[in-house]
Design a protein around this nucleic acid. Structure first.
Lengths: 217, 217
DNA sequence: TAGATTGTTAATCGATTAACAATC
DNA sequence: TAGATTGTTAATCGATTAACAATC
C-alpha cells in the first residue's frame, strides 16, 4: 500500500543524506527536521514528508537519530548494498567516473569499463580494467550486471544502449545528451549536465540584464 | 512583461536544442512541435509552451524552421555568446570538464583552472593552464569572469565558493555534494549527480522487487 | 505543565494536460 | 476547401505549503 514516490522527493533524499553524513562526522547524534530544513533551504514540512517516505520515524520533542535517518535513506535508495555496473566510453568523463570515490557511498561499483578505441583497451584506470567493447556480451554472460553507464559521444549512445540491453542490462545511466529509444521496461536515467547549465546561464543573463526581478526557481 | 520561466522549462530547453542540432545535421530544415514531442516523449502542448517562452514563432500548417528554433533557444539561454569561467579543483572530474567539447556549444569557456596541489599547478590540461589557487584574486583582477565551477571535494567547496565570491564571481556551478551558504545575490546551481543516481537506484530496486507497479515519475 | 517536536490533513499554488480557436 | 499545424485559454493534477492535532 505504499504511496507513489515523487521524483522530486527522490532527488532531495541524497541531499539529506550528505548533510546527515556531515553531521555524523561532527559527532552529532540527533537532528530535527526543522534544522535540516533551515540548513538546506527546504520547508520543514517537506523534509518531514520526504523522510516519512523512507520509513524513518522520529520522536516528538526529541527529533531523529542521525544514524537511523542515514540508514533509513540508504535502505530506501538501495545504497546499502553493492550494485555492480558496466561503464562504456572511457573518455575524460568516463575516466572521471571510474575514479569517483563518492560512488562507494551509493553502493555503485563499476566492475568493468569498455571502449572501442584499441589505444584505451587493456589499460586499468583507477583499478578498473578497460576491455574491448566487443567483449561486453561475453563478460555479461559471466557476470550478472544490471546497471550500465553510458559516457560515449552522443552519436554512439543509442548503439551502445542497445548492446547493453541485449546483454541484460536493466537500468541505464546516460551521460550522453541524446534521447535513447529503448524498450519501456528498461530504466533510463539521463544525467543532464546541460539542463543544470541552462538554469545557471539563464539566471546569470537575467541578473546581468539589470535585475528586472523575474524570480525563477 | 515577461512571464516567469519555470525551471522545468529551462531544463527541457537543452534537450530540444540537442535534438534540433541532430535534425540539422541530417539536413532537415523544418520541424513541427508535435514531432519534437513524439521523439522526446513530451506532450506537444508542453513543447509549444516551452518554445513560446523563448520567443520562437512557427507558421500554422508549416511548423518551425530548425535554424530559427535553434537560434531562438540559444539566444534565450545566452548560449550564443561566450561566457568565460574559472574552474577550481583539477581532480578527475575537473579535468574531464576542462576537456568537455560540448561546452563550446553552450558558450561556456573555461579560461583558467586552479588547484592548491603543487603537483598539478603549472600543467596545461586540454589547453587550459592550471594555476595555484592563491592566484585566483590576482587573475580575477585582470579578467572579469562571472562564472565559477567548483569541482573540489565537498569539505573544501564552501571555502572555495567564498573565495570566488570575493573575486567577483556572480554565478557558481557547484559539482560538490554540499549545500553552499553564500549571499543571496550569488547564483548557485548545484550539479547533483547523486540525485540522478537516486532515481535510477530506486527504480531498479522497485523493478527487482517484483514489479509491484509503483509507477514513479 | 509548557515547549518542542513529530506527523497528518487541508489549502494553495503551479505545472501539465486537454480543449479549442486561429490560420496558412 | 480540408487538413495540419500553431498558439492560447480552461481544466486537471500533483507537489508544496499551511494549519493543526498528537506526544514525549
Amino acid at each position: 500500500m505504499d504511496k507513489e514516490i515523487s521524483s522530486a522527493t527522490l532527488r532531495r533524499l541524497p541531499r539529506y543524506l550528505f548533510y546527515l553524513r556531515g553531521l555524523q562526522q561532527k559527532g552529532e547524534d540527533r537532528i530535527s527536521a526543522s534544522r535540516i530544513a533551515d540548513d538546506l533551504d527546504v520547508q520543514h514540512t517537506q523534509v518531514r514528508k520526504d523522510l516519512a517516505c523512507t520509513g524513518a520515524e522520529g520522536v516528538p520533542k526529541v527529533g531523529h537519530l542521525v544514524t537511523d535517518l542515514i540508514r533509513s535513506i540508504e535502505d530506501f535508495l538501495n545504497w546499502n548494498c553493492s550494485s555492480e555496473a558496466f561503464l562504456v566510453g572511457v573518455g575524460h568523463l568516463g575516466t572521471a567516473l571510474l575514479g569517483f570515490k563518492a560512488f562507494e557511498e551509493t553502493g555503485l561499483r563499476i566492475i568493468a569499463a569498455f571502449d572501442s578505441d584499441p589505444k584505451k583497451v587493456g589499460k586499468a584506470l583507477h583499478g578498473v580494467e578497460v576491455l574491448d567493447l566487443q567483449k561486453l556480451p561475453s563478460v555479461s554472460r559471466k557476470k550478472r550486471v544490471r546497471i550500465g553507464i553510458i559516457t560515449v559521444p552522443g552519436e554512439h549512445a543509442q548503439g551502445v544502449a542497445e548492446k547493453m540491453v541485449k546483454c541484460g542490462i536493466q537500468a541505464i545511466w546516460n551521460f550522453a545528451p541524446v534521447q535513447l529509444d529503448l524498450p519501456p521496461e528498461v530504466i533510463v536515467e539521463n544525467m543532464e549536465m546541460q539542463a543544470s547549465l541552462a538554469l545557471l546561464s539563464f539566471k546569470l543573463k537575467q541578473k546581468l540584464a539589470g535585475g528586472k526581478n523575474q524570480a525563477i526557481d
